[in-house]
Amino acid sequence: MVYIIEVNGSKRTVDVDPDMPLLWVLRDELDLKGSKFGCGGGFCGACTVHVDGQPTRSCQVPISTIGSAPIATIEGIAANPIGAKLQAAWMELDVPQCGYCQAGQIMSATGLLTSKPRPTDQDIDAAMSGNVCRCCSYTRIRAGIKHVAEGK
């Protein structure tokens, strides 16, 4: 099936099975390798992208359900002012360890700060607990979100 989807502001055409998850369309068809495969089951958040502005586990969404909803990935998140600030905070606070989870973390954090510009610790827990970091960089992920929220 041929699908035309909007990714990071550009229209892209792919010819894939309707049940192919968005994650694999991005990674293997469009060569956008920033979104990561961690579990394939919706449990780890490494594959988080934005669909219509909402943080979404791309391993769980078949391409056939995307329609005209705009998609943003880590490769394009710098176009979002909050995303760009989070990227800068991640660098400044040296958040990554292995780095494998961090694209998903930044995508989830961008979603959080878009809906709640001044999140409480409980808001951070609720929005970010779907994103596993096996290196346990959680202290700095929390600090990075607060750093941006406090306009530093």
Partner: peptide, 23 residues
């Protein structure tokens, strides 16, 4: 001195640096 990870910029922008990203 506290020196940040040398690949942080690539990590936060989603560059293909992991084994799974090889093409």
């Amino acid at each position: 001195k506290r020196i940040p990870g040398v690949e942080n910029a690539k990590i936060v922008t989603g560059q293909p640096i992991f084994g799974i990203d090889v093409t």
